[in-house]
Nucleic acid binder design. Structure first.
Lengths: 116, 116
DNA sequence: CGGTATCCGCGTCGATACTG
DNA sequence: CAGTATCGACGCGGATACCG
């Protein structure tokens, strides 16, 4: 029943890419993988991201239970973001793809520079 | 130098997601993984895709040397698409992510149905 | 059969300004 | 510091019609 397994595989892939597909998501994921960070730290670490997109992606990842958000209401405000266990497994699942990308990155770039 | 390796890893991930991020790309990839197919077969196999997107994604994958295009000019016209060796390695790299998606798909869907 | 060309809606992304 | 609100540009993706 290889055919049935394909569909499952592909739909799993779709789901995963949906989680990770946003422009800054993998970057957020990886950065958070380094350890717990506050909102401001995250923003500085991901230099170039707008607050809007950072919040938006953070909320989505939070909803998907990939990141954990812990707010400390007070003065000054302090919110800490960290990876959940599920987030950790996602990073592991991403590793082979990251390695593949590493191995082919330069070739891809030159191909696109030449023809695209 | 974990910090340097992170950047490499992330940029590799970005490159990979760029290759595979289009709406139908993984599906095309997987379908072609089953074996060589003609344009029409591919279109029927990926029921619902418009010709425009199929061609567009096919061209991009071809440019990235993920798929191979072989045209037989004649009557009737016949064009066959197949996976390259690189395409094969990409599918392998995608497998853990697909498994992860499978394992979490239902949870993700219910989370999104509830809150999103 | 295997494309190409064109139009258009919609969601994504960025910039900017404002709030508790 | 950690957001929220709003606006506008842009590109993806779908539908349709046409070409070799």
């Amino acid at each position: 029943m290889a055919t049935r397994r394909c569909q499952v595989f592909v739909s799993g892939l779709d789901a995963a890419i949906d989680v990770v597909g946003g422009k800054w998501k993998v970057l957020i994921l990886w950065t958070l993988g380094q350890g717990t960070m506050r909102f401001g730290e995250l923003k500085r670490a991901l230099d170039g991201v707008s607050e809007k997109m950072l919040i938006q992606h953070l909320r989505e990842l939070e909803q998907d239970e990939i990141v954990h958000r812990e707010a400390h209401h007070g003065v000054p405000p302090k919110v800490e973001y960290s990876l959940t266990d599920v987030g950790g497994t996602l990073i592991e699942a991403l590793r082979p793809l990251g390695d593949w990308g590493c191995a082919h990155k330069e070739r891809l770039e030159s191909l696109r520079a030449a023809e695209g």
